[in-house]
Design a protein around this nucleic acid. Structure first.
Lengths: 195, 195
DNA sequence: ACCTGAACACCGTTCAAGT
DNA sequence: ACCTGAACACCGTTCAAGT
C-alpha cells in the first residue's frame, strides 16, 4: 500500500526502455533472448538490467504484466456476453493464441500452474488462476464442464493444447480444433460403433 | 543396404562412449546438456563429438534410437493383448511417461510431428508415426476413436498431455488422468445439467 | 582416417570504479 | 542512488596440427 519510493529520473527512463526493448526481443527470439543484447539495444550497461530485473523471470513478468492483466479482464468480458461454457472455451482460445504469439508468455505462465508453486506465487500467476477459477466454476454450475476438474487442470491442459498446436505448424492454426477435441473427447459421443 | 564402411577401432570406441555418456547427460540436464561436458566426460576432444554427431539433434537421435524402437515394438505388443482403444490409450501413456522420464525424448520427438516435416523426416520420426498410425486406425475401426483425427493429431496431443502433466508436478503423476480427460472430454457425457 | 585442443565468438553474471 | 563496463566463467563450433 505504501507508495514505493519514486525512482530517480534516469533510473525510470532506463527501466522503461529496458521493458520496451525486452518485449520486442522476447517476441523475436523467444524466452531465451540474449539479456546482454537487450541491455545493449536499450543503451544501458548490463549491470543496469540486472539491477532492475535480477532474474530473467522478473524481466519476463514485468514485460508481459499488462498483457496478462488484459487477459484476466477479458475473462470477465467474455463471461458477461456468452454462456459460461462458451466463455471458458473462448477464453482458453485467446490464452492459447497469446501463448503462441507472444512466446515469452508460455515460459512465464508455466511456473504459475505447477503444484507447489511456492516460489511461483507471483502476482501474474494469481491473476490468471483467479480468472480461470471464475470461468471454471461458472461452467461447472451450468453443467457444461465436468465437476471433477480444477482451474489448474484446465490451465495446464490449455498449455498442452498450445504446445500441441505449435508443434503442428509453428503457429496456432490447429488450436481451435484441438480445444474442441479436448472439450468433446477423442472417444465418439454416440456409440454407433461397427461398420 | 550396402554395409557402411566399418569404423576404425578407436573411432568406434569413442562413438560408443559418447553415446553412453550422452544418455546420462540428457537424463540429468535435459536436452540442453553441455556438449562440451559430454565430450570431456567421454574422454574425447570436442572435435570428435562434432565429427560423429554434427548437430545436437543427431546426438539426441542416436542416443534415444533404441528406446524409440522399443516404443514402436511396444505398440504392436499392446495391440496384440488389448482391445484397440485400450491399446492406444496405454501406448500413449507409455509414450508420455517416456517423454517425461527421458527428457531428451520430447525434444527429439517434437520435430517428428510438425506439418511440413521436410527437414524432420527422420528415421525415428517415421518409426513413431507408423506405430501411432496402426493403433489409431485400429481404434477407429473399432469405433472407440473419432474418425476425424489423424495419427499426427494424436501424437501432438500426447505431447501436450505430457507437457501439461510435467507442468503439474515436474513428474508424470497426472498423465493418466489427463489422458482420460482428453479421451472422455471436458464436457460431461450425460447431459444432466442443472442443480 | 581420425583425434586433439587451442582459438574464436557469444552469453550470463558480478562488482569495483565512477557520477 | 544509480550507472558503466571490464572481468570472469561457461558454452558451442571450427580447424590447424598431429598420429
Amino acid at each position: 500500500m505504501a507508495q514505493v519510493r519514486p525512482m530517480r529520473a534516469d533510473a525510470r527512463r532506463n527501466y522503461e526502455r529496458l521493458l520496451r526493448v525486452a518485449v520486442e526481443a522476447f517476441a523475436e527470439h523467444g524466452e531465451g533472448a540474449s539479456l546482454d543484447d537487450i541491455a545493449k539495444r536499450a543503451g544501458v550497461g548490463s549491470g543496469t538490467l540486472y539491477r532492475h530485473f535480477p532474474t530473467r523471470h522478473a524481466l519476463l513478468e514485468a514485460a508481459y504484466l499488462d498483457r496478462i492483466e488484459a487477459l484476466a479482464a477479458r475473462a470477465d468480458a467474455l463471461a458477461a456476453e456468452l454462456p459460461p461454457g462458451e466463455a471458458l472455451l473462448e477464453w482458453l482460445h485467446e490464452l492459447g493464441t497469446g501463448m503462441i504469439r507472444m512466446r515469452g508468455l508460455r515460459a512465464l505462465l508455466g511456473p504459475a500452474v505447477t503444484e507447489g508453486g511456492s516460489a511461483a506465487a507471483t502476482a501474474c500467476g494469481d491473476c490468471v488462476r483467479n480468472a480461470a477459477g471464475r470461468l471454471v466454476r461458472a461452467a461447472q454450475e451450468e453443467g457444461t464442464l465436468r465437476p471433477d476438474v480444477e482451474p489448474m487442470d484446465v490451465l495446464r491442459l490449455a498449455h498442452g493444447v498450445a504446445t500441441a498446436s505449435e508443434l503442428a505448424d509453428g503457429q496456432g492454426r490447429h488450436i481451435r480444433r484441438y480445444l474442441a477435441l479436448l472439450t468433446e473427447g477423442l472417444r465418439p459421443r454416440d456409440a454407433d460403433a461397427g461398420s
